[in-house]
Design a protein around this nucleic acid. Structure first.
Lengths: 349, 349
DNA sequence: GCGCCACGTGAGAGCGCTCTCACGATCTGG
DNA sequence: CCAGATCGTGAGAGCGCTCTCACGTGGCGC
């Protein structure tokens, strides 16, 4: 009686509970699902029986009749996940997970490790395993959002989809973040401001470049092609870009890098070229990842609310699922400039 | 006929396929599941019908009868996941995901964000949603592995569980990695080697400290308490520990930090104290995370095969699931020292 | 030439749950 | 005091699939 009384619940069915409680299956089901139309006495009996038998509903059986799976798929293609070296990925997942578990939904993670695996993922998502899907944005045009939407499964994309905008998405304000970074540099007296951009086929790259241009124009400076170099978000790419910039424009006195990793690469090159940061060249990165605080000097960077992005994706998805056929919506979350030493003080002159 | 012929498969049942193909449900089921006992002609007909109708099996219905879910749960408690600031977490997930999808299994991610959520997770795992569970190791004693095992659900832990060893686990060779780091420092002529350890309630902390001691002893040096300071794997913790070490042992000429983040913190403090790295003080970290390469000077570090750890966890889990009641096994994966500038050259003398 | 053995196939019984519907009992209003 | 509404409950019909079992049918050995 001490132990073993409450089994593990596996194999205990609704029917068994009903028998023990002396009621019908329907009544037990009502109790389990919180249906108010149950008498006091019956409810008590059922609860006791459930407790005693350690009953746990069989999810498959339930799902079979309700036609819901109570879980949603999160698709993160391999390369982007790794690119942002830093906690981007875990933080996004964390936000998504938090919002999901608050609603008693489960998270099925799908990581196609190559384009070849995408059909598999798509098949999985459309087979009814999930009630909706969250996709993190991908390079260039991606057919998946549209394909899923066409099959009637609710979809929300994280990060503005580079292709069309026929799908709901959540993104951080890349344009605004970049703009404020540049404005900050101008305010500090910098006048020859270069940018190391991201890949031109990713919206984060495109939008941050756009913000850079707006920042210059807004500050009364002119946009010059010789000050713009695209890279790939990696440290090595950032270093290479910085070399090119130094060669073309030795008079550069500030750099806005579209990622912290690229900023770190740029800083190495500047150091090798005997340019002091921030005295000779000011630097601002993007992401406010852990290397920003670690760098020497600590890197001014644009912080993005990644957890919040995850949460918002879930909210948008559920909203979408609750009324099918509604028009795609987009949500843009504000970014924030975090000032550190790499952009301190005015120019040397 | 051009479009719309193949629907999305939702709502198309086995029965519908059977009718179109002119066979029974059983035969269709056989074809779908690759049962060889089906005639050529029938098989062809069925395949055609499946294609035409866009049939996709209903996972819930299948799961209801097979009593398998074809998915496994991965439990990652919040704090540890974030602690290793760097790609530890995504990389592990990537390894797990790769191995899982090769076997056509799905990954359900559970991130209890506080101990209060653990019962929820446990209930989920035992309700039959998953065929097995992968847990990443946790602080101190954790009841979950035992609880799950008791309820008959296969479990594999990532990282040696600090408590008992009554459960299968996969870990990297923390002891060996730390030992080789210290051996490397000794070989370079260092004699006063301090360590900044991890939390003493985490196996990674314990084992790396043990490896440090073995390294010293193996190199003919003595283990001195004044050279050992425990921290929490964070950069700030590493900095604080370094200050303590400098105060107690100004003669220190090398530091083995149990994480790269702590090594970075230590380097900042050394720089502030006008000690050159590596000339005055050599440093080796652990994890070989992205900040190791980014640091200035680049940080020598112990690399761990994280993806492989994920893959191995899956293998072990499936092995365990295939024969229930088998004894717990453990798998230890080798680590590798990656040399960079932070430990270059001999001592200054 | 007859029994026997594959072999391919179909009928049908569930898997455990939800949900509609019908029913008796109790309550309300005129 | 009775019609009608209200409430709690149970019976039963599936949800879509797998799998056992039994049933032809043809080929083979002796």
């Amino acid at each position: 009686m001490a132990a073993g009384e409450t089994g593990n619940g596996r194999g205990v069915t609704l029917d068994a509970v009903a028998r023990v409680a002396g009621v019908s299956r329907a009544t037990v089901s009502r109790v389990v699902n919180g249906n108010p139309k149950v008498g006091e006495e019956a409810k008590r009996q059922v609860e006791r029986a459930i407790e005693r038998l350690g009953y746990v509903p069989n999810p498959a059986a339930r799902s079979l009749v309700t036609r819901r799976s109570d879980s949603i798929g999160v698709v993160i293609p391999e390369p982007p996940g790794m690119l942002f070296g830093d906690p981007f990925f875990p933080r996004l997942l964390r936000g998504i997970s938090a919002e999901l578990s608050a609603r008693n939904l489960q998270l099925v993670l799908l990581m196609p490790q190559s384009p070849a695996e995408e059909p598999r993922v798509e098949r999985y998502l459309t087979a009814g395993h999930v009630d909706g899907a969250l996709l993190v944005s991908l390079h260039g045009e991606d057919a998946m959002p549209a394909a899923l939407a066409a099959r009637g499964i609710p979809v929300v994309v994280g990060g503005r989809p580079p292709g069309g905008e026929g799908v709901s998405y959540v993104d951080v304000d890349n344009v605004g973040g970049a703009r404020s970074a540049v404005a900050h540099l101008i305010r500090a007296g910098r006048r020859v401001i270069a940018t190391i951009g991201g890949p031109p086929d990713m919206s984060a790259g495109i939008d941050r470049l756009e913000g850079y241009r707006q920042g210059l124009t807004g500050g009364g400076l002119v946009v010059e092609p010789s000050l713009q170099v695209a890279a790939d978000f990696t440290q090595e790419g950032g270093a290479e870009a910085m070399r090119r910039i130094l060669a073309a424009r030795p008079d550069v006195d500030a750099v806005f890098a579209a990622s912290d990793l690229m900023a770190a690469g740029a800083m190495q090159v500047l150091r090798a070229a005997d340019r002091r940061v921030p005295e000779d060249v000011s630097i601002v990165g993007f992401d406010d990842s852990s290397i920003a605080a670690t760098a020497e000097p600590p890197l001014t960077s644009v912080r993005q609310p990644i957890e919040e992005m995850g949460r918002e994706m879930v909210r948008l998805l559920l909203e979408q699922a609750s009324r099918p056929g509604s028009v795609p919506r987009k949500v843009i979350l504000a970014t924030q400039l975090v000032r550190r030493r790499s952009s301190e003080g005015g120019p040397k002159r």
